Amino acid sequence: MIRNMIVAGCATGILLCGAGQTMAHFGMVIPSENIVTQQKKNIDINLSFSHPFELIGMDMVKPTRFYVVAEGEQTDLLNSLHEAEVMGHQGWATNFKVKRPGVYHFVMEPQPYWEPAEDLSIIHYTKTIVAAYGDDEGWDEPVGLPTEIVPMLRPFGNYAGNSFTGQVLIDGKPAANAEVEVELYNRDGKYQAPGDYHVTQVITADENGVFSFTCPKPGWWGFSALSEADYTIKNPEGEDKGVELGAVLWTYLNEYQLQ
């Protein structure tokens, strides 16, 4: 498994260096629906580690953990995953049947990803929140990750043009001045960035770890709050190297429908 991560990281590093830019990595947990209704009780969920705007995938080995939290109860979903192709690379997928009303937090903890271009390992704790059958309680509650983004705007039932607000936590405490990267999942490839700086937007949170961003287009938007772990992980040569932690949250914004 580690070898797979190393190969993927090296290939990505070569690609990024050749492109003359550094694109942001994003853990991705993308469901087919973020609001479940009686007409659509099952959702498909894709997991990957990718560059969402540029649609550049990377091979990802099976996550360390994948589970859902609803009404304070955690359910392990790791064994439900099967390999799937995401952006032309190895990802993972599952199908989840929502049986009762609630707010469902789907959480992925990946295995560490060695990125030679940055000389560190990357772990993105990735979360997506799905509402079901009219319930909207508990969307603003943390799930106890080492680092996570807690939404302050309800993360479903929103329109493009809304301003998303969230709070970054590290070990359950506000992360002052956290750096947050933002990207649109350019799933259909219909958008082109004017330049490299436009691919990934960057925000600095305030002293309470709070940030806001106005999402101009409909679709899935990813927010990744980056921090440095207080531990190291050995690289392929056996050297102790730093670890980048990412608190990643995905939310979907709709466009208004015409009558």
Rank of each mutant, 00 (worst) to 15 (best):
I2L: 12
R3M: 12
N4V: 08
A8E: 04
G9L: 11
T12S: 14
T12M: 13
I14K: 15
L15H: 11
L16M: 14
C17M: 11
P31Q: 06
T37V: 04
Q39T: 07
Q39N: 10
N42F: 02
N42Q: 09
D44M: 01
N46K: 15
N46Y: 02
L47V: 02
S48D: 02
F49K: 08
F49S: 05
H51Y: 12
P52F: 02
F53V: 03
L55E: 00
G57S: 07
M58T: 08
M60P: 00
V61G: 11
K62G: 00
P63T: 00
R65Q: 10
R65K: 14
V68Q: 04
V69G: 06
V69Y: 07
V69N: 12
E71C: 12
E73S: 07
Q74G: 02
T75C: 07
T75M: 10
D76C: 04
N79K: 10
S80M: 04
L81W: 04
H82R: 14
H82N: 05
E83G: 04
A84G: 02
V86L: 03
H89W: 00
Q90C: 06
G91L: 02
N95F: 00
N95S: 12
N95T: 09
K97P: 00
K99N: 13
G102C: 06
G102H: 06
Y104E: 01
Y104T: 02
H105R: 12
F106V: 09
V107C: 09
Y113H: 11
W114C: 07
E115R: 14
A117H: 12
D119P: 01
H124D: 10
H124E: 05
H124M: 09
T128L: 01
T128R: 12
T128A: 10
I129V: 15
A131V: 03
G134W: 11
D135K: 15
E137S: 09
D140Q: 13
L145T: 01
P146Q: 10
T147A: 13
T147Y: 01
E148F: 01
P151W: 00
M152P: 03
R154E: 09
P155C: 07
G157H: 12
N158H: 13
A160P: 02
G172N: 10
G172M: 11
G172R: 14
P174C: 06
A176P: 05
A178L: 11
A178Q: 14
E179A: 14
E179G: 11
V182P: 04
L184H: 09
Y185G: 00
Q192A: 13
Q192C: 07
P194T: 08
G195W: 05
G195E: 07
I203A: 11
E207D: 12
V210Q: 15
C215N: 09
P216F: 02
G219H: 07
W220I: 06
W220H: 07
G222R: 10
A225H: 04
S227E: 05
A229W: 01
A229Y: 01
D230A: 13
T232D: 04
T232R: 08
I233F: 00
K234N: 10
E237D: 08
D240F: 04
D240K: 14
L245F: 12
G246E: 02
A247T: 01
Y252I: 01
Q257C: 11
Q259G: 13
